[in-house]
Design a protein around this nucleic acid. Structure first.
Lengths: 195, 195
DNA sequence: GTCTATAAGTCGATAGAC
DNA sequence: GTCTATCGACTTATAGAC
């Protein structure tokens, strides 16, 4: 496993601590202790604690934006795009568990102007997600539901998947994608027509 | 609207601030400012900041436990119980939005022994929730899915509902229950047999 | 690039006057 | 029950020696 720069090590260490204790409750000294150095030494590699949070959230936000763009511009139909979105969340959750854990809550500790950049990225992502669900309804792949609530429901689970994955790392990624599509798109109930 | 005691006012004010800024980033002085008094005066009504968090999380946990007990011991069948659980989350979210917002993340800031009490309540609740889904599968109301992942998926959305509701308070509660049951149990996809 | 020392401020909580 | 004053610990971040 290739080792990153010391800066990257610090950022990854911070991500783990931010996930476990929260951004505010994690001190620069905590990060330094975990790195085996003094707090002041960290400042040779990072500008501030805030910069770490900013970097983590905006870089993971970029990954989601790029993934969304690829799926949106693909030749897949709307329901296939929806399935690919679920798969992308599963894959990014497995690859960037700690950074992703900051998305639901810790973004509130971003300062201006970083917080605005993050919220713009998030809003754009949700709009594009909503457009795909809307298209799936128009094309009769999906039932007529409250679209905003359906998108919220799917994204809530996908954004929290990191907490489930943290405790179940041995699951096969393909199986996780399959199960998530069942839970989020297909539904649990056995329809009366097929019983 | 009946006004509570000053202690209750403080706790409700703290809940709102904890939701918006997080427990750690909310100072006792912040709570006092919102109450229009000095920080030291709060201590005539509460023992500590930690006591507020403890009270909020354990009292809301009690409400869920009691609701679960009522549903579990009811004469409903398993799929009806599952629907009632969704309804209960919706109702408690509407009635206790701020306190419920602390469940996904802020419990990590509980100290011993309160944190253990909270986690015992939560684990019991999840076990009983899982048992009901399991029963629904055995009785062929629900498809054969990864039970733990399905429960996680449903609870993720229900625990995050407070954030959607905070921005959409005008929705009719009955409609919200109906839509959540569709998203979480029935599924979005139109099955091939019914098209 | 790492250290020691420290600045400048905030934290939760308490003492004691009124 | 509310206030002013304050304690001691902790916070992020910087200065400067090596």
């Amino acid at each position: 496993m290739k080792k990153g720069s010391k800066r990257e090590e610090i950022i990854n260490t911070a991500a783990l601590l931010f996930r476990k204790r929260g951004y505010t409750a994690t001190s620069v000294r905590d990060i330094a202790r975990e790195m085996g150095m003094e707090a002041s030494s960290l400042y040779n590699h990072i500008a501030s604690k805030q910069e770490i949070l900013n970097h983590l959230l905006l870089s993971i936000g970029q990954l989601f934006s790029e993934g969304m763009k690829d799926i949106k511009t693909s030749p897949l139909n709307s329901i296939q795009k929806l399935e690919r979105l679920v798969d992308m969340h599963v894959r990014l959750t497995i690859e960037h568990t700690d950074a992703i854990s900051l998305i639901p809550n810790e973004w509130i500790h971003l300062e201006a102007p970083a917080i605005k950049n993050f919220l713009v990225l998030r809003d754009e992502y949700e709009k594009e997600f909503t457009a795909i669900v809307s298209e799936a309804i128009d094309q009769s792949y999906v039932k007529e539901v409250n679209i905003e609530l359906a998108v919220f429901s799917i994204l809530s689970t996908l954004r929290w998947l990191y907490s489930w994955y943290s405790k179940n790392k041995s699951i096969n990624p393909i199986e996780l994608e399959t199960e998530m599509r069942k839970c989020l798109i297909d539904g649990l109930r056995i329809s009366e027509h097929t019983v």
